[in-house]
Write a protein that binds this DNA or RNA. Structure first.
Length: 903
RNA sequence: GCCCGGAUGGUGAAAUCGGUAAACACAGCGGACUUAAAAUCCGCCGCCGCAAGGUUUACGGGUUCAAGUCCCGUUCCGGGCACCA
């Protein structure tokens, strides 16, 4: 990567003087009595840089661990969500490194995208410059957090070295028929004459012009992810390391449904013949209700609708109206359902009755055949539609003897647990039997069959935008759409354009636009559409694992590192990014590039970091956001926000709790936290605040506590160096020694906490790992320290604490490990395991319940039998009191926990 | 609207397989040290009650010797809904 800010880290030939000292001295050395995070962190980071501690290569002598965090979009500054994400990844990476794994943790930049164009419009800066400047700044921020990243593998998706392979694989997909050109529906701003992203459509209007947005059909390239729908669904079962909820969301998104596709026949046609050869196809999962059809509805773009509109101005106007409004599913689902009859009729395939065809604004051309049968009695949406337009409703399914009423929709109307009624020969059949019988009957008439239908749609990757990967196609008047030959890749994006919001600036770049046709040599026009940025992020994990500069998309080293052992990123990516990556991987496999079929073995979906956002709703629609520094906030006694006003004019603002985002002016920059307290405090606090998968409402209350804790760790280190360690003799005597009870109890406590911490690390619950380290320090500070044996126990226990702490707070752990003489480099230390000998206990405490209520506790020998425990419990003072002279009916003994006397 | 999550003290949270609700912290209150402040250390800290005790995990039911945890229903909050990334 040749660009500024993206050069690979070069091995330092000569380290700073004190670094050499750090590496060679393993005996204790004088230490600062004050905790000075800035100095400690600078020294630790220089040590890691100079020793290239995190640069890794394939090594078959060790198990590998590829730990990947979702790469950031270079929006300008890191925010707390990034700190959370990358700290989680770093904790796992460092933990596994100490466990003996060969750990790869790379980092890069998801560098194409809309915000760079927005910044360009606002500041007149080319997106490239803005992006590379942001990368440089954010890279330095990441470095200051001390992440164990192999920076030699850094990549940015906006560099030709990277996106060349997007283009290359796209051409392979074209060859295989996985990519194809067809039409797509986009948001069109009629004033700016440009395509808008969903985000740029606010309340149905263009974000800059305020003009009513139109739907427009334009050509674009699609990747046939639906060809992989079956495999994407079934392979979910193999992803044992994925959260169930994510797999469920993906399965629902893919949306496999089995039903019947059949045709209503008709005689509607014009001079070109019958429309659709006289068949209007529909798909239904409720074929059992086919005898209850009272109307049909088609999408506004359906050929029958368009045909009817030719002679029906009212209908034409309605179809025109349907063209406005949103293309978003959420809007489609919540909008008022409207329709208009076409005056056309189709024939019911089984009854032969004439059924009227309506145009419905809720019917999607993109799902199935763009037409549906209407069974108002048993479909909630059809019911509402029929009531609104006074269409007949005919019950054809009964559940038990429940009475059907037209007054209001009831839950059971949509049930599949009933049987057919009013359905002629199908009466009495269950859902499954009726579907089978009806499918057989339409099949016999050759007008339908059982069919699997997917909710998943093909992936449209064409974007009418500048700052993205050029689609490698040349349009020739004679030859059509011609793929760019491989030897002319990459098609490089000019980096000096400044978009102004009025369409793709590439249209004005004649040096880019004008190109000779690769087939006939005539002057032709280069495709100006660029790829969806989800393409960039669909395979970056494989590129990290490829040797830098390889003139292949992926190389042999990829086989060593892939698949990713642990992937970490926000839950907001649970569907799209992860599904596209899975799809892309399967295509790469089918092209013969890789041998694995799934990219991510384990997935940790981090909860969002939320913050309040404050905004005005201006008249033209949309939201104007303000920074918290610009407003006054009113809170109630419990601290809940009750209102907010703008400082400059006192106007009232609305507020919402939402994800941190540059566009909402509610992102919190970690920089001040790092400068004030240091990276270790920021990291520790972030991990301590909540378990990683939980949504986190940002607050810095508690940062002081994390800082105080690290100061205490340092102070104890100092005390250990000056007062405790000197008591230790030349030979150690801890192993095999019988410890006095107080010392044994202390040591047991530390080893129990270690056991707990290891368990929690396995669960990836880092907040309780952090609290375990705090408990350890609390115990260590109170422990006996006035003997050689006590000093040895403390040496062991503090060593455990430093190692458990090191993934969370690597800098202070590095400094203390070195300066207290534990070893040269804590990264090379083995992860601690609890010792059985330290855990043994003679007596245990059981809780005592009477009728399920806690009444006391009793101490029993650790090896006491159930009978002995029961006898002791019944005789216990508190038990006798609360049993009030009644005889026990039952005594429940839960080993190691409690006794419950029921009387 | 549909799909997926979540809700526990003043606050962030803990509770591993249904078995001591509130660990560990933050904030607060009281005290020690200090000329003072900061820092540090000690103590208290769900609610009601003088106490004994009672009571408490969004709300309403249920299962169980035992429910924050399992089941049914409801409310509110967050994520996603295919062109934000």
């Amino acid at each position: 990567m040749s660009h500024q800010g993206l050069e690979r880290v070069k091995p330092a030939t000569t380290g700073p003087v004190y670094n050499a000292r750090f590496r060679t001295i393993c005996t204790p050395q004088p230490m600062q009595d004050k905790y000075l995070p800035a100095d400690i962190e600078r020294a630790a980071q220089q040590h890691w840089d100079s020793t290239e501690a995190f640069r890794v290569a394939a090594d078959t002598t060790k198990p590998k661990y590829y730990c990947l965090s979702m790469f950031p979009y270079p929006s300008g500054k890191l925010h707390m969500g990034h700190v959370r994400n990358y700290t989680i990844g770093d904790v796992l990476s460092r933990f596994h490194k100490m466990k003996g794994f060969n750990v790869l943790q790379p980092m890069g930049w998801d560098a194409f995208g809309l915000p760079a164009e927005n910044a360009a419009i606002k500041n007149q800066v080319p997106p490239a410059k803005w992006t590379y400047d942001n990368i440089a700044y954010m890279k330095q921020q990441l470095k200051s957090l001390g992440f164990a990243i192999d920076w030699s593998r850094e990549l940015a998706t906006c560099t030709p070295e990277y996106y060349k392979w997007n283009q290359w694989l796209f051409l392979r997909m074209l060859e295989k028929g996985v990519a194809e050109r067809k039409t797509q529906v986009v948001n069109w701003d009629p004033v700016d004459q440009t395509v808008l992203a969903n985000e740029q459509v606010i309340d149905g209007r263009g974000w800059r012009t305020g003009a009513l947005v139109e739907k427009r059909e334009i050509p674009g390239y699609y990747l046939k992810i639906t060809d992989y729908a079956d495999e994407l669904l079934s392979d979910l079962d193999e992803l044992e390391g994925w959260p169930e909820r994510v797999k469920l969301m993906q399965a629902n998104w893919i949306g496999k449904s089995t039903g019947v596709r059949f045709a209503f026949s008709h005689t509607v046609g014009d001079e070109n013949g019958l429309i659709g050869d006289g068949k209007m196809w529909v798909f239904t999962t409720r074929a059992d209700t086919i005898m209850g059809v009272t109307f049909c509805a088609v999408a506004a773009e359906h050929p029958l609708a368009l045909h009817a509109a030719k002679s029906n101005p009212e209908l034409a106007a309605f179809i025109e109206k349907c063209k406005h409004g949103s293309v978003m599913e959420a809007d489609m689902a919540t909008m008022e359902k409207e329709g208009l009859p076409t005056g056309l009729f189709v024939t019911h395939p089984l009854t032969g009755e004439q059924v009227e065809v309506w145009v419905g604004n809720y019917v999607l051309m993109s799902y199935g055949d763009g037409a549906v049968m209407g069974v108002p009695a048993h479909d909630e949406r059809d019911f509402a539609f029929a009531k609104k337009y006074k269409l007949p409703i005919e019950q054809v399914v009964a559940v038990g003897d429940k009475a059907y009423s037209l007054d209001a929709w009831q839950e059971w109307y949509g049930s599949k647990d009933g049987h057919c009624v009013n359905s002629g020969k199908y009466d009495g059949l269950s859902y499954a039997d009726a579907v089978d019988a009806i499918a057989a009957d339409v099949a016999a008439k050759n007008i339908g069959e059982k069919k699997v239908q997917w909710r998943l749609r093909d992936w449209g990757i064409s974007r009418q935008r500048y700052w993205g990967c050029p689609i490698p196609i040349i349009h020739c008047d004679d030859c059509g759409s011609v793929p760019v030959p491989d030897d002319q890749l990459p098609v490089k994006l000019p980096e000096d354009c400044v978009p102004d919001g009025s369409g793709n600036p590439l249209h004005k770049r004649l040096d880019f636009l004008h190109v000779d046709c690769p087939k006939c040599g005539k002057q032709a026009r280069r495709e100006t559409d660029t790829m969806d940025t989800f393409v960039d992020s669909s395979w970056y994990y494989a590129r990290y694992a490829t040797r830098f500069g390889a003139d292949k998309m992926v190389d042999e080293e990829t086989d060593y590192w892939m698949t990713v052992d642990q992937y970490i990123g926000g839950i907001e990516h649970a569907i799209l990014h992860l599904l596209y990556s899975r799809f892309w991987t399967k295509v790469m496999r089918d092209v013969g590039l890789v041998s694995y079929r799934e990219p991510f073995a384990h997935l940790l979906t981090q909860g969002m970091v939320l913050n309040n956002a404050f905004f005005h709703k201006p008249e033209g629609g949309g939201k104007n956001y303000f920074w918290e520094s610009e407003i006054d906030i009113q809170k109630d006694a419990k601290g809940h926000i009750t209102g907010a006003t703008l400082k400059k004019d006192g106007s009232t603002l609305e507020h919402e709790l939402t994800t941190m985002s540059k566009s909402k002016n509610n992102g919190v920059d970690p920089q001040s936290l790092i400068e004030q307290y240091g990276a270790d405090t920021a990291r520790f606090f972030m991990m301590f605040a909540a378990p990683p998968e939980q949504t986190l409402e940002w607050s810095d209350a508690g940062v002081e506590g994390a800082y105080r804790f690290l100061r205490r760790v340092w102070s104890f280190g100092h005390l250990f160096a000056t007062e405790i360690r000197p008591q230790i003799g030349a030979t150690r005597s801890l192993a095999g020694a019988k410890l006095p009870e107080e010392l044994a109890a202390f040591r047991r406590e530390i080893h129990l906490l270690l056991k707990q911490a290891n368990y929690d690390l396995g669960k990836q619950q880092f907040n309780t790992v952090a609290s375990a380290t705090m408990k350890m320090l609390n115990a260590i500070e109170k422990a006996p320290r006035q003997s050689a044996l006590a000093a040895e126990v403390l040496e062991e226990c503090f060593g455990i604490l430093l190692r458990v702490l090191s993934p969370l707070t690597p800098h202070i752990s590095h400094a203390l490990w070195l300066q207290l003489g534990y070893g040269n480099d804590i990264l090379a230390a083995a992860w601690p395991e609890p010792l059985d000998a330290a855990l043994v206990q003679d007596e245990i405490e059981l809780m005592l319940q009477v009728n399920g209520k806690l009444r006391g506790s009793l101490r029993v020998p650790a090896d006491a039998t159930k009978d002995a425990i029961e006898a002791a419990a019944v005789a216990h003072e508190a038990a006798v009191k609360f049993m009030e002279g009644k005889a026990p009916k039952k005594v429940v003994v839960v080993p190691g926990r409690l006794v419950n006397i029921v009387c």
